[in-house]
Each structure stands twice: as C-alpha cells, then as structure tokens.
C-alpha cells in the first residue's frame, strides 16, 4: 500500500472516530459511554502518532513516549470521572 493511501485511510479512521465520539457523547452519560468516548480519543491519538507522525517505524522510546501521553491523559480523565461519581 502506498504511503499516501495509508495516510488517507488514517484520516478516514480519524473522521469516523470523531463522528462516533459525538454520537456516543449524545447517547448518555454512563460509564461505558464515557469510556467509549475516551477509547475513541485514544484510537485517534494512535492514528496520528503512528500514521501521520510516522512513529510506527521510530525507536521504541520515542514511540512509547508519544503513545504514552494520550494514554496517561485518558486514564487521568477517567480516574477523575470515577472519583467524582463516587457517593460522598
């Protein structure tokens, strides 16, 4: 597959995940839906880092750092939402 075609497929994936996350967000506020929205965001971050930024062929340290950032953000947000949903 040519590099340009890979990039276009990445963009398609990003667009689909973006639309899906809005649909999921409008469907309600359950933990499963919130986790799905965050998972979609992580999927998009992966497409950008490995696809657009070409880190899939990069040294593991750099790839790990760039993939770890959205993962840490997603987990942080999920954790704060879980804590706020606990009864006082």
């Amino acid at each position: 597959m040519s590099a340009s075609r890979t990039l276009i497929l990445c963009w398609l994936g990003l667009a689909v995940l973006s639309v899906a996350s809005v649909q999921l967000g409008n469907s309600g506020a359950t933990l499963v839906l919130v986790a799905s929205v965050l998972l979609a965001a992580l999927g998009k971050a992966w497409l950008i880092t490995d696809g657009f930024m070409e880190l899939r062929h990069a040294p593991r340290l750099w790839r790990g750092l760039l993939l770890g950032w959205p993962l840490a953000m997603g987990l942080g947000v999920l954790l704060t939402l879980l804590l706020s949903s606990q009864p006082a």
């Binding site: 809005v22 965001a41 971050a45 880092t49 947000v77």
Partner: peptide, 22 residues
Amino acid sequence: VLYWHMVDLVWVLLFPLVYVLN
C-alpha cells in the same frame, strides 16, 4: 509538519474533554 501533527494530537484529547464528555 510534526509540529502541526502535535497540534492535532492535543486537540483530539481536548475535543472530548471540553465538548463531549458528560
């Protein structure tokens, strides 16, 4: 171009946090 993708990367996390999550 990498700088521009970094701007994209940040936005894909900001977007659900600010606009979508309930």
